[in-house]
Design a protein around this nucleic acid. Structure first.
Lengths: 142, 142
DNA sequence: GTCTTCAGTCGGAATCATTCCGATTTAAAT
DNA sequence: ATTTAAATCGGAATGATTCCGACTGAAGAC
């Protein structure tokens, strides 16, 4: 997913392309592996555009998520995080440092069978493993 | 999971068995298929023990979860929910009525391979499908 | 290029589930 | 019966997120 692709997607969806949105897209892409949250995006964005408002960051992320440009990872104990990788995958979430690692899903769930059995129609998925990343395991041993 | 089993588990963990904890266990078991949240447990509990405090409900659920008696399902948009079914399964979460349905996981993830590849050690899992349950699909069509 | 309009932006206040606090009570071991 | 650490209580604090009304500017029409 490139900067230009995302801006094009905005245009397709009829959303306006503003400097704030370009900025937030940039931060999202640069910090992609970190799966940044609103506060990091706000802090990083404010460095480059001091007038940026936190409300705008939230509104923008909400719009992007609603339009399917990004995926919101919701948490209770920690702030929500946002990811640009929309391929089906498992998120490995470190309970110590909060790092989030993508892991390709070898999951096989027959959704037709699921719907037949339960009457439930799947719209979106959320697959997460919580534990400790390599670095944090090392720190614990030491 | 029966009432007696859970109380026994409390004893094993060195936790005190109080009337409030018995009460919360009862509500958890009775409302198990609904995967109740703190407010429902509080409301239901207060009917039977008017002196019950919301703080106690939260503290108790937190302790139970910490000791592995129950599993906390954390959400951002809606209040957290608690489940007694500790078998690995997918939670089907209706985005309209909030109902949560258990679905057995035919997932196959080789955790040894996962750890080898990523260095990540899995502690707990969270598998969720969001969508619409049978009843809510019917209402939409009508 | 100018005009127009509505989506987008802004800062601050409000929200609300959850956590924290210090005082009181009580389960259960001695 | 006594002791004590754990549990409970109500109310205040927290903090990420949402809401609000006023202002601004992107982009389509002319």
């Amino acid at each position: 997913m490139t900067r230009e692709t995302m801006i094009e997607r905005l245009r397709e969806k009829g959303l306006k392309i503003t400097p704030q949105r370009r900025l937030i897209i940039d931060v999202l892409l640069e910090r992609q592996p970190f799966h940044p949250g609103a506060s990091l995006i706000y802090a990083e964005g404010k460095k480059r555009t001091p007038g940026l408002s936190l409300s705008t960051v939230y509104a923008t992320l909400h719009e992007f998520s609603r339009c399917g440009l990004i995926k919101t990872l919701e948490f209770d104990q920690m702030e929500n995080r946002y990811e640009v990788n929309l391929e089906e995958h498992v998120n490995l979430i470190c309970q110590r440092c909060g790092r989030i690692i993508d892991y390709p899903s070898p999951f096989i769930v027959d959704q037709a069978e699921l719907t037949e059995k339960t009457g439930f129609l799947v719209q979106k998925t959320r697959l997460e493993y919580y534990g400790y990343c390599r670095d944090c395991l090392g720190d614990r041993a030491a």
